[in-house]
Design a protein around this nucleic acid. Structure first.
Lengths: 331, 331
DNA sequence: CTGTTAGCGCTTTCAT
DNA sequence: ATGAAAGCGCTAACAG
């Protein structure tokens, strides 16, 4: 920067003003400075700016796993928004591990990120995040809430989505409907199961805990659970999968051991429409979730300090065939 | 840091030594300092360290699109490696746009990243990257090479993979085999088409340009191209898809207009095994590619300045059914 | 083994 | 509209 200043014959501060689009520079000087910047290939050293100002032009994103298509899509949407604001994204996967998540938040903080977007892992240190907010590093959470902390939040309407999916199966004549959800510790899994329970209750169907599986999705877990269900005296005629990881695992298992089950899954996934029959799903929109989270963050970064918002994104049911197989109680 | 120093009664430099695991500190002093660090909740300000040392504990990753499962998986693998080295990852998607890619590289550089891993977009400013290398910011490219720049490179064996896939179709009796590849500007697309050509030549089959589609994968492009192929006097009996985006689009289109084609795709994708028939693919291993790229990078960061390496990862063919449909020339 | 000094490149503050 | 000086928090270089 001093090189540029010397070249043009002004002080470093004037160059700094130009770089920061300060208005108090004569257009003519600014033009000369810009020309020199171009010519010398000058690029501001962000670390020095950061050291002085205390906040980097960077946003930290903490999610469960970038390799998961849901989070991948969301990441891309956030990235676009962040880029449009002249910033860059630090991305880390918590792997659903609270200690790792805490460590990563610390790493973001010591790098001076200007904001934090995260899907909180169960058991994270909320004080760490509260401290950040206090230090004017805005925090936005998505996918799961962080109770107690007054923080902007973007969630899918998990409960209503699950109700819609399960009700859809009931309307097609099913009364024995199995539910597969992620581990009990995962907020979305609990919400979706609650929705499942509500939909059954609304239809006057008693909840049978034999039909409820709450566990981390996995190939062998899918096989074993399905075998267990098939062996019941009164086996299910339909399955509701609580997330797309379960959908994929279950479809794989069902493909190997045909059981003629109706199927609805929460969250869409690639090729759901190409499978035969097409897979009926309750979709959420990960890109929209990312966009909304990023927008909330930038509103805070730009100074808004109104009360914390909680935005719920609606879901919608996409019927493709698997959820419309008639059950034994067809009306 | 000076707070910690005052608390313990040593100089800031001694604290700095402890934080940096310098050996020249008496274990006892170190213990007292560590205790104070813990108690005061001190965390090193990375920006100051960066300003002083000129290189951040950060690695920049530039790829085409994080939302693409191939890159998502790769990103996660790199992340693990980067985390193990106490660093964090800045991730950006070039969207296959050279100007955007250049801008992002610049942004990485001005943030002082300690290394750069990238899938070069066609037409990128190679001088920018050469400059970086000169400044001792190691650069590793993956998926596509960057000729001219002596830079570590990790590639899949695209040509041999394509040969294996096409040969597989030939062995099952096909001689009219269509090829769908990404746009001509994409290195992997050119390589895979070259492999396709070689496999045909080896079998004494003349290349028919009517059967070759080189374009960005898309839903309508898939529909139209397939319709065009079906209308040929001598239509293809098999298709080789040059990447998993094309595979997905083509399978979607074929699902709607059954054509009874044998099918092999380059690169695996989720549910390829669940479709009926299962989709035969030539797999590459994105996680391995990421891991290898990160390892090369850290070798450089740690000071290795041997000649640039070029690593080629082998592919393998996974037969699942779609590629084994017999053609009219079954032996 | 520990401390002192200086300076990384920028922006804040205050002056002109 | 522009400049001078100070300092952000850390570590390299050197001294002791």
């Amino acid at each position: 920067m001093s090189d540029v200043a010397r070249e043009v014959g002004v002080s470093a501060k004037t160059v700094s003003r130009v770089v920061n689009d300060d208005v108090h520079v004569s257009p003519e000087t600014a033009a000369r400075i810009n020309e020199a910047i171009e010519r010398l290939g000058f690029r501001r050293n962000e670390s020095a700016r950061l050291l002085r100002q205390g906040t980097a032009l960077t946003v930290g994103l903490l999610l469960e796993d970038v390799a998961d298509p849901f989070y991948g899509t969301l990441t891309r949407a956030i990235e676009e928004c962040v880029l449009a604001h002249g910033r860059q994204l630090l991305v880390s996967s918590s792997a659903e591990d609270a200690r790792r998540a805490d460590h990563l938040v610390g790493a973001f903080v010591s790098r001076g990120v200007g904001g934090l977007i995260l899907a909180p892992a169960m058991g994270m240190d909320e004080k760490l995040l509260a401290d950040q907010q206090a230090k004017r590093c805005p925090v936005v959470v998505f996918d799961r809430p962080l109770e107690g902390l007054g923080v902007d939040t973007v969630l899918a309407d998990n409960r209503r989505g699950a109700i819609a999916g399960v009700r859809h199966l009931i309307e097609h004549g099913h009364r024995r409907i199995a539910f597969f959800g992620d581990a009990e510790s995962v907020y979305t899994a609990r919400e979706r199961r609650a929705g499942y329970g509500e939909a059954l209750a609304d239809a006057g169907i008693a909840l049978d805990s034999d039909l409820v599986v709450m566990a981390q999705p996995g190939e062998s877990a899918a096989e074993e659970s399905l075998a267990g269900l098939a062996a019941l005296a009164d086996p299910p005629t339909a399955v509701f999968a609580g997330n797309n990881r379960w959908s994929v695992q279950l479809l794989r298992a069902v493909g190997r051991h045909p059981m003629n089950l109706a199927f609805v899954g929460f969250d869409d996934f690639e090729l759901a429409d190409v499978l035969d029959p097409g897979v009926t799903v309750v979709t959420q929109d990960p890109a929209a979730m990312g966009r909304v989270a990023a927008e909330l963050l930038f509103r805070r970064i730009e100074g808004d300090d109104g009360p914390a918002q909680r935005i719920q994104l609606s879901t919608s049911l996409v019927a493709r065939g698997s959820g419309e197989k008639p059950g034994p109680f067809v009306k």
